[in-house]
Every structure is written in structure tokens, then in C-alpha cells.
Amino acid sequence: METKWAVENLQTIRTLMERSVLYRRALAPIMILAGTIGIAAGLAGWLGRMESSREFVCLWVVTAISSLAGALFLMRRQALKDSEPFWSPPTRRVCQALLPAFFVGLVMACLILVFISGPGGEGIELILVILWVLFYGCAVHAAGFFMPRGIRWLGWIFIIVGCALLSSLSLGAHWVDHMQPNLLMGGIFGGLHLAYGIYLFFTEQKKPTT
């Protein structure tokens, strides 16, 4: 009886200890970098007239990979600076939370690239923007359970923006049809990340506690 109770208590303690370790590295530089890359990609796509669905998908997959690589580089640099392991349990949990939604977004991009892009696939970019925004919001919200709680608000903002675009599209709002997809991506992904990065820059605790 006492043994069973002791085993259960030890398990509860272990679970609580694992859950209480939050990812606390400074997010401001990562958000500002992702925002800057996003806005630059949006402008490049617009000015470079990358309007076909194939060009659109390629541009934003490359942008996502560049942002991810930049974020990992900054995270590694912070870990080295603090003499801490890069692939720490909180980092691992954040990545695991992000992965499913990121994976679905990538699969959608690949399918569109292979089967839908080209003649007859016009207009798919807008649908893709909305789905990417929604999936990204869900991914950020999921990761927010292992990070300071503010990040979950960012996830909700993406989800609300995605839902607003979806509703506008469903209701046949003309302004959505006239939006340039690259600018929309740059504005939503780049703009929101940059705004959140600037907010964090002025409000984030300068010395991470974990």
C-alpha cells in the first residue's frame, strides 16, 4: 500500500519537475530575425513578380528554412554563451510541439508544388497562406505550453488572423482576392514576428533564468 503510494508520488514528482522546466532563452533576437526575413521575402516576391504558385511555394519554403536555420544558430549561440547544452529538454519539447503542424504545412506545400501548381492552379496561393497561418498559429500555441505564457498569445493572433482571412474569403470579400499573396505572407509572418520581437526586446528579462 505504502509502496504503491510512494511509486505514484515519485512519478508525480517526476512529471511536475519535467513540466516546470520552461524554455527561457531570449526570444527577441529570434523573432526580429524571423520578422525581418519574412518582410524581406514578401517584398522580394512582390517586386520580383513571383506570382506563379510554384514560385510562391518555393520562395516561402526557402524563407521558412532560412528563418529556422537562423533561429537555430541564434539558439546555439545563446546556449554556448550561457555554457548550457543546446539540445536541452525544454528545447526538445518546444521542437516536438512545433513539429506536427510544421510537417503538415510542408507536406501541403509539396503536394501543391507537385500536383496543383501550374496551369489551373491559380488562386491556390491565398488558400495556402491561410492554411499556413492557421497551422503556424496552432504550432506556436502548442509550443507555448513549454515557454513563457506570452507566446501563446502570438499563436492566438495567428489563428485569429487566419480565421479572419478564411471568413473573408468564404464571404466573398473582394479585398482578399486583390491581396498580393507574397505581400500578405510578408505582412502576416514578417510583420507579426517583427512586432512581437520589438515588444520582447523592450520587455523580456535580459538574463534568462534557465
Binding site: 508525480t12 511536475l16 519537475m17 519535467e18 516546470s20 520552461l22 513563457p148 505564457r149 534557465t210
Partner: peptide, 23 residues
């Protein structure tokens, strides 16, 4: 109290809000 001690044992410090949400 055991839950509070367990949570604090794994983190250098937690805010009141973080503890409240976690537990």
C-alpha cells in the same frame, strides 16, 4: 506543497502565475 516543491526543484525560480498555471 509537494507539487510546489517539485516544480521549484526543476527551475531556478518560477513566477506566481507560472506556478498557478502549472499546478
Amino acid at each position: 506543497r509537494l507539487a510546489i516543491m517539485s516544480a521549484l526543484a526543476a527551475a531556478p525560480e518560477l513566477t506566481f502565475t507560472e506556478l498557478r498555471d502549472l499546478l
